[in-house]
Simulated assay, not measured.
Amino acid sequence: MIVRAVVNEFAKLRRLRVVPVLAVMVIGVVVLSCVAFTAPGFMDSVDDPAAQPWQWLLGGMALAVPLVSPVLLAVLASRQVDIEHQGNGWLFSQTFGLTPGYLCRVKFAATGSLVAVATLVQSALVVVLGVLVGITVDFPAEQWLGYTASIVVVNLVLFALHLLLSARIPNQLVGLGTGVLGVFVTLSSIGMPSWLTHFFPPWGYYAVATPVDASGGGMVALDPPYLSLLVLGTVGGAVFLAATRMFDRQEA
């Protein structure tokens, strides 16, 4: 049943213009990440390891992701659920044995997979553009891959949160407003001590995942607490499952 339900959700995605929204997210992150190309002296230092061109791009992406992702993930979740609210889709799905909680889990599986792919694509595109502009210094693969994996986790947890919020509150302006508020929380978290950002999940974890920081005209490598991000993903998944099962009991 779940395979058929996921296939049905993918069919809905074509009508909901989900891919264009994800494309906007990818393009927005890539463009803002590559603002470093316009910095004075950047193009003259693409072959200078001391100038750390890859780290500057990574730092740009660490700022671009929290600026773009929270609002667009809220939009994605809203579009997934609003169609069910407007067309009485919750009741219609129940006639086929799909409870509201089950349907939420299916929506997360379908759209969440696209969110993960989009996050990987935006990271890869920044790398490709860095190569195209002529960066020849050693690529910090471990640092880059660690940040990319961390952002996949944070994006999925945030998407799950918005999916729950949109499912329980028919007024989708609430979810969208929360997405806008999330941008301010995220940007505020960037300037907080690392221990304090842990108290603002999931938005604060964009700052927790930050792998580099500007200091003294250069970039300093940070040591992101990957265990904290793993805990976020585990707890976020458990909360999502528990909440959707509550949806099932409430609608029974």
Rank of each mutant, 00 (worst) to 15 (best):
A118K: 05
T119N: 07
T119E: 02
L120D: 01
V121Q: 08
Q122N: 12
V127W: 10
V128P: 00
V128K: 00
G130N: 06
G130T: 06
V131G: 04
V131C: 04
V131S: 05
L132R: 09
L132W: 05
V133A: 03
G134C: 11
G134L: 12
I135S: 04
F139K: 13
F139D: 12
A141Q: 13
A141L: 15
E142P: 02
E142H: 12
W144A: 11
Y147I: 01
S150K: 03
I151G: 03
V152T: 04
V152Y: 02
N155E: 04
L156F: 03
V157S: 11
L158K: 05
L158R: 14
A160V: 06
A160P: 04
L161R: 08
L163G: 04
L163A: 05
L164H: 08
L165P: 10
L165Q: 13
A167D: 07
A167P: 12
R168A: 15
R168C: 11
I169V: 15
I169F: 15
I169H: 08
P170C: 11
N171M: 07
N171F: 13
Q172S: 13
L173E: 00
L173C: 00
V174F: 14
G175N: 15
G177C: 07
G179P: 08
V180C: 09
G182Y: 03
V183G: 08
V183I: 15
